[in-house]
Design a binder for these strands. Sequence first.
DNA 1: TAGTCCATGTAAGATGTTACATGATTCA
DNA 2: TGAATCATGTAACATCTTACATGGACTA
Lengths: 184, 184
Amino acid sequence: MKTDSNSNLGFALLGLLWQSPRSGYDLRKFFSATPMMSFSDSPGAIYPALRRLEQRGFIRGQAEGARRRKIFQLTPRGRSEFRRWQTQPITRQDVVRNCDALVLRFAFMDQSVGKRDCLRFLKSFQRELLQYLPGLREYFRTNRRHMPASGRLALQNGIEAYEGNLRWTEVAIRTYRNQKGGSS
Amino acid sequence: MKTDSNSNLGFALLGLLWQSPRSGYDLRKFFSATPMMSFSDSPGAIYPALRRLEQRGFIRGQAEGARRRKIFQLTPRGRSEFRRWQTQPITRQDVVRNCDALVLRFAFMDQSVGKRDCLRFLKSFQRELLQYLPGLREYFRTNRRHMPASGRLALQNGIEAYEGNLRWTEVAIRTYRNQKGGSS
DNA sequence: TAGTCCATGTAAGATGTTACATGATTCA
DNA sequence: TGAATCATGTAACATCTTACATGGACTA
């Protein structure tokens, strides 16, 4: 157990280091400069996370240049761990409490797994959304009368977010279907 | 400093206890039974959180009935702390990294602040979204060519989520505008 | 040579997770 | 009486936040 002990931040770091080897400082700059991810760029988060990844054998760092800069890159174990995380089955809990993490899992898929696994992921995501949404809508329909305006609107916001994700899976699946080739 | 030391869970508990006094067990059941919030229903999260709220003087609990059940309710300090949290200014950071927390802040507004503050919140949320989105779209436009399909789609997912929130603020603002009365 | 980046780190504290523990009450 | 449910709790562990610390390199 506890094989999945990396945090979202840890996996985001693995994904970025898979793209290209970088230093902790590079990663911090990436988080603060690009609007892509909402992770902290604080040294107190990044550097300890990198050390943990290194201790677990997922990345390896070596000093470089004059400034005591340390460049990290993935090890084979890190790559297989990252793929394991990406391709593990999508649970209802993932959809209910962690949609952002699901999108993060998908964000780096092109570089690590094949078109087949991308599509498998998207369809599984879509399936879970289709199973979860009816219950949500039903709850809304039966309770909206007794809810104050702000509560009702907040619930609506949540439902619309799931519906947005559902439409997104449809577009994404079409994108991959129309793509030629693929594999890995 | 550190006046805002409550977590999202803490504030969610305050909001629910404002609705009606409950026990920790009731709150756990609420989290596991309703699809409204994605908080943990684990005792290891709820009970320590309740004790912290009590220590800080935001809630007060008293034993009830045979089963050693403890019913919590908000103190005046708890109510004012909750309102303070809800009405504090919306920052760009809130929008970038914590949209869920913003919706949570709004979810209980009807019971704690007036229509005026609800509208102020929604317009402020809308303003921040309108300021943030153009940069996101610009980043997407200039970088889409160099991004792998999965990365591009993940970014699109993020942008669409913000657009969904923006549309939601419009609907919500209209809802409150068309409401008669209000205040408190 | 003073200030500003670069680059990494640590320490204290809060919170959350998982797993385990405890005892009362209800019901078959 | 045994099982399920009610109801609360603790302990170990991992992670993140904030704030502070350090020192090299570049540049005005």
